[in-house]
Amino acid sequence: MSATGIGSMPGGDALAGEGDNAHEYAEAVRLVLGELPDFPHLPELPGRGAGAGMTGRALALVSELGVDLQPAGWRLTGSGSGVDHRRARSLLGRDLDVFEEHAQGVSGPVKVQVCGPWTLAATVEKPRGDKVLSDHGARRELAEALALGVADHVADVRRRVPHASEIVVQVDEPALPAVLGARVPTASGFGKHRTIHPPEASAALETLVGAISDAGAVPIVHCCAPDVPVELLRGAGARGLAVDLAVLPASAYDGVAAALEAGERLLLGVVPTLAPDTAPTDKQVAEKVLRFLDMLGLEPGPGLVLTPGCGLAGASPAWARRALELVQAASQHLR
Rank of each mutant, 00 (worst) to 15 (best):
V243M: 04
A182S: 11
Y25F: 15
V230W: 01
R86W: 12
Q113I: 14
P127E: 12
A211T: 00
L120Q: 04
L33C: 04
G66R: 04
A262F: 02
L248P: 02
A225P: 03
L92R: 14
P249Y: 12
H153G: 02
D277T: 05
V247M: 06
L324E: 04
L65N: 05
R183Y: 00
S63I: 11
F99C: 11
R194D: 10
V285E: 03
V98S: 13
L59E: 11
Q170T: 06
H222S: 03
W319P: 02
L306S: 08
A28V: 13
E173S: 07
P174Y: 12
L45P: 08
H136L: 15
L208E: 02
V171F: 01
P40L: 15
A88G: 12
V32E: 10
V285Y: 11
G237N: 13
V271C: 10
D68E: 15
S134V: 05
C310N: 06
L298A: 06
L148I: 04
L92Q: 10
W319V: 08
L36H: 08
L298Q: 11
R239D: 08
W319C: 06
H163W: 08
V305Y: 02
P43K: 13
P174F: 11
R265Q: 01
S331E: 05
F39P: 02
P300V: 01
A26Y: 09
Q328M: 04
L31W: 03
V221S: 01
L274S: 13
P71H: 06
K126D: 00
A147Q: 04
L61T: 04
S316W: 12
G19M: 13
D13R: 15
L274T: 13
V271D: 03
P46L: 04
G34H: 03
A103K: 03
D97A: 15
W319N: 02
S2V: 07
C223R: 04
A187V: 07
D244A: 14
K111I: 09
S202F: 07
L148D: 02
V132K: 07
A250N: 06
S79H: 15
A275W: 07
V132F: 11
V285N: 08
G51E: 13
G181S: 14
A279W: 07
C223V: 09
G7P: 03
E64A: 15
L290A: 11
P280W: 08
D20P: 00
G309S: 15
A145R: 05
A201T: 07
H136Y: 11
V169F: 01
V209F: 03
P249I: 07
L298I: 06
R139S: 06
R140S: 05
I196T: 15
T4Q: 01
R322E: 15
C224A: 14
V305K: 01
G49I: 07
D172M: 05
G34P: 02
A145P: 03
G210L: 10
V169W: 01
P226R: 02
L148E: 09
L148F: 05
A246E: 15
G19V: 13
Q113F: 12
